[in-house]
Amino acid sequence: VDNKFNKEQQNAFYEILHLPNLNEEQRNAFIQSLKDDPSQSANLLAEAKKLNDAQA
């Protein structure tokens, strides 16, 4: 993981990586967004979790 991520951002990265119901395309999009703007990690994680739950 890129060293410019802080602890919260790293946690978001790993959580998104391991959400079971996202397809690869969705997962990659969230990860790319996280890399583009790490400050949005909490929002991105919340969105990813919502999508993950919706696809459960």
Rank of each mutant, 00 (worst) to 15 (best):
A29Y: 12
L34S: 01
A42H: 14
L22D: 00
S39E: 14
Q26W: 08
P38K: 05
S41D: 03
K35G: 08
K35R: 15
Q26A: 04
F5L: 11
E15A: 06
I31R: 02
N23P: 06
F5N: 14
Q10R: 05
N3C: 12
I16F: 02
R27P: 00
H18N: 05
A48Y: 02
E8I: 02
N28Y: 07
Q55Y: 13
D53F: 15
A42V: 13
H18R: 09
I31W: 02
I16Y: 00
S39L: 13
N43V: 11
Q40T: 10
Q10N: 05
P20Y: 05
N3W: 00
Q9V: 12
N28S: 14
R27S: 03
S39G: 14
N43I: 14
S41E: 02
Q40L: 12
N28P: 02
I16W: 00
Q26L: 03
A29I: 11
K4I: 15
H18I: 09
S41C: 13
L17R: 05
L22E: 00
A42G: 07
K35C: 08
Q40E: 10
N23H: 11
N21C: 14
A42Y: 09
Q26G: 01
Q26K: 06
L34I: 06
F5M: 15
L34A: 12
D37W: 07
N28I: 15
D36H: 06
L44V: 06
D53A: 15
N43L: 02
F30N: 00
A54Y: 15
Q32E: 13
Q9M: 03
A42L: 10
S39C: 10
A54I: 12
H18C: 05
A12V: 12
A54R: 13
K49M: 09
N43K: 12
Y14V: 09
E24Y: 09
F5S: 10
F13L: 06
Q10D: 05
L51P: 00
S39H: 13
I31Q: 06
S33Q: 10
N52A: 06
Y14F: 12
L22G: 00
K35Y: 03
A54Q: 13
Y14Q: 14
L44P: 01
A46N: 12
F13S: 04
E8V: 02
A42R: 09
L34W: 06
L17F: 07
V1H: 10
K35E: 07
Q9G: 03
I16C: 01
Q9P: 01
A42C: 15
Q9Y: 08
L45V: 08
A42S: 08
L51Y: 06
S41Y: 15
A42Q: 09
L45G: 02
D53V: 05
L17V: 09
D37Q: 11
N6H: 04
I31F: 06
K49V: 13
D37L: 07
I31D: 01
A48R: 00
D53I: 09
E8F: 02
E24N: 13
K7H: 08
R27Q: 06
E47S: 07
P38W: 03
E25C: 13
Q32V: 08
Q26R: 03
N23V: 05
A54N: 13
Q32K: 05
A42K: 06
N28L: 14
D2A: 01
A12Q: 03
S39I: 10
N23M: 13
L44W: 03
Q55W: 03
L44A: 02
N11T: 06
N3F: 00
A48C: 04
H18E: 11
K49D: 03
K50W: 14
V1P: 09
R27D: 00
L34E: 00
D37F: 06
N3V: 08
Q55L: 14
V1F: 06
N6M: 03
A54V: 11
E25I: 14
N52W: 01
A48I: 02
S41A: 09
A42P: 08
D53M: 11
Q55V: 11
F30C: 06
V1E: 15
F5K: 10
L34V: 11
L51H: 06
F13M: 15
A29F: 11
Q9A: 09
L51T: 12
D36Y: 05
N21S: 11
L17G: 07
F13E: 03
F30S: 03
K50G: 10
H18S: 14
K4E: 15
E25H: 12
F13A: 07
E8A: 04
K50E: 12
N52F: 01
K50I: 08
N43A: 06
A12D: 07
L17A: 03
Y14H: 15
Q10W: 15
N43D: 09
N23S: 03
Y14L: 11
K49A: 10
A29S: 11
L51E: 05
F13T: 04
L22I: 14
N28E: 15
E15W: 09
H18Y: 10
D37P: 00
Q10S: 07
E47Q: 07
V1N: 10
P20L: 09
K50A: 09
H18T: 10
Q55N: 12
Q55K: 09
N11A: 12
R27L: 07
E8D: 15
D2N: 02
D37Y: 08
A54F: 12
L17P: 01
A54D: 10
A46G: 08
K49T: 11
L51K: 08
N11S: 11
E15C: 13
N43E: 15
Q9E: 08
Q26P: 00
D37V: 10
E8L: 02
F5A: 14
E47D: 02
D2R: 01
L34R: 00
N6D: 14
N43M: 13
Q40N: 07
I31S: 02
Q9N: 02
E24V: 12
Q32R: 07
Q32F: 05
L17S: 12
P20R: 07
D2V: 01
L22Q: 00
D36G: 09
A46L: 13
D37H: 12
L19S: 02
L22R: 00
N28K: 08
Q26M: 06
K4R: 08
Q55A: 13
N21R: 05
I16N: 00
N3Y: 00
F5Y: 06
